[in-house]
């Protein structure tokens, strides 16, 4: 025991002033490097997240038209902007509508953390898109933004209705393929009854 403490004392005498400084410097650099790398990886990870929605085509069209040479008519640009706005509102509504479901699933543990984060990101991105749209609309005409959004919403509803009306034929085809036999035989029966009644 005594021998040991003697060695310790000797070693303590030899330690230079730089030792603690070097220690602190090494520690701090290690921590800084770690935090930088960690943050970068985080940001990269967030950038790599896949968006929920497919490519926003109306938005692309609008930008293409806007930076086209020669510049198209203002009316064309406004129409394209309304299309872009209607798509933005559709997405916003989808996200709003799904928000509580996603939250519920997250609380139930049915989806992972990343997915929940992605959903929140998507909402943020759509909010930014709406802000940008407001500014863009104002740039065409002062005070247009409120009417612009109202028009966009009309377009969205109209489109939704149209989609449904247009889908009727397709639905008929799908259903008759699924239930082919029933539809055919039922139709035949009805036909037979009709002809019987007629004669």
């Amino acid at each position: 025991m005594a021998e040991e403490s003697f060695i310790k004392e000797e070693a303590a005498a030899k330690i230079s002033v730089y030792t603690p400084i070097i220690y602190v410097v090494v520690m701090i650099t290690a921590l800084v490097v770690f935090s930088v790398v960690y943050r970068r990886r985080n940001v990269k990870h967030l950038q790599e997240m896949k968006p929920f929605f497919p490519e926003n085509i109306p938005r692309e069209i609008y930008f293409q038209l806007k930076y086209q040479e020669p510049k198209p008519n203002d009316k064309v640009l406004k129409a394209a902007l309304i299309r872009r706005g209607s798509e933005a509102i559709r997405r916003m509504m989808k996200l709003r509508e799904n928000q509580q479901h996603v939250k519920l699933l997250y609380e139930r543990g049915s989806i992972g953390d990343e997915l929940f984060l992605r959903h929140q990101f998507a909402s943020k991105i759509q909010e930014l898109e709406l802000q940008e749209l407001g500014l863009e609309a104002e740039s065409y005409k002062q005070g247009w933004a409120p009417t612009f959004f109202a028009v966009c919403q009309e377009v969205t509803f109209n489109e939704a209705l149209r989609r449904r009306v247009k889908a009727v034929d397709e639905r008929k085809q799908v259903l008759s393929a699924e239930w082919g036999l029933v539809v055919e035989s039922a139709e035949k029966k009805v036909e037979k009854k009709v002809t019987e009644a007629a004669t």
Binding site: F52, P54, N98, S110, G112, E114, L115, R164, A167
Partner: peptide
């Protein structure tokens, strides 16, 4: 893996399908 034992990526694709679900299609 989610609490139901599904891989999170699978859960993500299912969720995407549901979010982009088109109610007019059967």
């Amino acid at each position: 893996y989610t609490r139901q034992g599904l891989h999170v990526d699978t859960a993500a694709t299912f969720l995407e399908t549901l979010i982009n679900y088109n109610p007019s299609v059967i």
